[in-house]
Nucleic acid binder design. Structure first.
Lengths: 343, 343
DNA sequence: TTGTAGGCGTTATCAT
DNA sequence: ATGATAACGCCTACAA
């Protein structure tokens, strides 16, 4: 019997193909395919044979061929604004932990807080035909929105909540979190309360809104007590802004920082200048990063449930991919005020 | 003229294909392909036409089809041990900045300091037929080594140096860095010098070796002044280990931490207990993370050139992919002692 | 410089 | 329950 050129039984180099597995198992390629994917009805014994053949050959499916034939890859595209913020690393880990066991690859796109970059990432990565999308927040370009819509892909939005839109989202109310921060500082008897924010992404701004509104309602809002800068958040920036704020407004007795790294920098700067925290000025952070608990004084913060958000968002996406209807498209995971020594 | 079923001129749904671009430009698909990739010799005017057609159609090549036909994707696989360490984020950013403009996608694999996980990642991601590999360090399983070898892919090793092997690597001598740390502490007149390390990956251990050897040569080595733990490095752990070490060995007057986060934790713990740094005990970190410069006192550290390492490694890989011969397969990027207030 | 033919490895569709 | 056949969209090889 002559082998035709498509027959790979005798091939000795390169990775094994489904064909070879099929031959070794004595079945047709399509049966091997089905057996390996656990779909449809394949006789138990055949499944066993195929799996054995695959194992012996060290067979691993070619994702490109698979994607081409099925018109979709086994990946999920996750877009985050930064990798420098531990917040998103934690989120990614959580996502990973639920998607990986399901055989889905997590493709990470870092858009550096740039809407244009996010748009580019979408344009490029959508071409990979991912199974679903995990996006951060609701703020993006019109083009991005259209591409997401046009892709028809299941999509879950993380970190923020948006009840009106009908979008699937898992997060917490940024506005409420900001309000809670203000209420806490107020409850500590603080009178002249500042807000310091960097990066100025949508969520930061919403936090600021909630914070500001609460202060206003308490008759304690002063726009001079606000520093907003688009510069990237960091410990160094926190030190700098703290010094700047206290120099300009020495009477301030409470500060809410939009992220823990800023607050940590403030704590450090305060120590350097002998400013007593919380006696002279209370410092409240946001996100509760791991190191915050070890600052001097230990930083009070608002803990955001990024692990749960990541997990739930991934699970919800899994359901969407499976075609299930989501009972609760808007999942509020809340947040937690973590009181330590700095407030 | 009847359209055959392969003819997509009239197709109205789904993403545009190369065929459609070709038709619109009035050329054959292969010419369109060549024009878009900028390969071979295609008449300038045809290139223009094809590009215009592609733009009008919003054409984006299907990576799966491309990978299947060409037997390789447009991705580079980068394997790092952690995303929680800013060190690797910086490295990834640098890699990104050189590979992205060349049209290469950076696929990130986080192996969580686990050799087994790295092996899994290789097994899975090699199936994607990346153009090249960017790996961290030299420590891995035999299987991993074999897979890398068998893949025949260009590969550059980052962070450490290994002159004997003939492997391409970009990094610095971990041993020398450890030695430099010891020499510095010694030069500060420290007599009882400790070494605190977590994670215990190969590079950390090598740093320890260099550090230890230098102390031994100076007659100042005491094994009781060493804490090695496989637990993950963090600020909190640094605080804990510092307290533990000083309780057990109060006479210690200098400590080298294998990573800045540990050193930062130590500084915080010292402040909490009124231990004077550097008067009573000098604290030296490693990597020089951004926040270290803002600690109280400002942390002395050894700055590792991860940005340059990432960039150079990526550039070297690009050369390898292009089939160029590398003049300097081993690139020592050095390190820098950053003296601040803690030593 | 351009085009033709064929195949890359897998899965969907339709039979059996 | 299993298989034959034909795509999937692009690129390599070779031919013109």
């Amino acid at each position: 019997m002559a082998y035709n050129k498509n027959d790979r039984r005798s091939r000795t180099k390169g990775r094994p193909t489904l064909n070879e597995v099929a031959h070794r198992a004595g079945v047709s390629p399509i049966t091997a395919s089905r057996a390996l994917r656990g779909v449809a009805t394949v006789a138990e014994e055949l499944v066993r044979k195929v799996e054995e053949a695959a194992r012996e050959l060290g067979y691993i499916a070619n994702p490109a061929a698979r994607a081409l034939a099925s018109a979709h890859s086994q990946s999920v595209l996750v877009l985050v604004p930064s990798l420098a913020n531990q917040l998103f690393i934690d989120t990614l880990e959580a996502i990973h932990s639920v998607l990986r066991p399901k055989g889905l690859e997590v493709v990470i796109g870092n858009f550096h807080y740039s809407r244009e970059e996010e748009e580019d990432l979408l344009r490029n990565y959508l071409a990979y035909q991912p199974r679903g999308l995990l996006l951060t927040g609701f703020e993006r370009t019109e083009s991005s929105r259209r591409m997401i819509e046009a892709s028809g892909l299941p999509c879950v939005y993380m970190m923020d909540l948006d009840s009106g839109s009908g979008l699937h989202c898992v997060g917490f109310s940024q506005v409420n979190a900001g309000a809670a921060a203000a209420r806490h500082l107020l409850s500590r008897g603080r009178q002249r309360i500042a807000f310091v924010a960097a990066q100025l992404d949508q969520r930061t701004l919403l936090r600021g809104d909630g914070f500001r509104r609460t202060l206003q309602q308490a008759g304690r809002y002063d726009p001079a007590f606000e520093i907003l800068t688009p510069r990237p958040s960091s410990v160094g920036l926190g030190s700098e802004l703290f010094a700047q704020l206290l120099a300009a407004q020495p009477q301030i007795d409470g500060i809410f920082f939009c992220n823990d790294d800023l607050a940590q920098g403030a704590l450090l700067e305060a120590a350097r200048h002998g400013v007593k925290v919380p006696e002279q000025v209370a410092v409240l952070g946001f996100n509760d990063l791991p190191s915050s608990a070890f600052m001097v004084p230990r930083l009070s913060s608002i803990r955001t449930p990024r692990e749960i958000i990541g997990r739930r968002a991934a699970e919800q996406l899994l359901d969407l991919i499976a075609g299930k209807t989501i009972a609760e498209p808007v999942q509020d995971m809340g947040f937690e005020l973590v009181l330590r020594e700095s407030t």
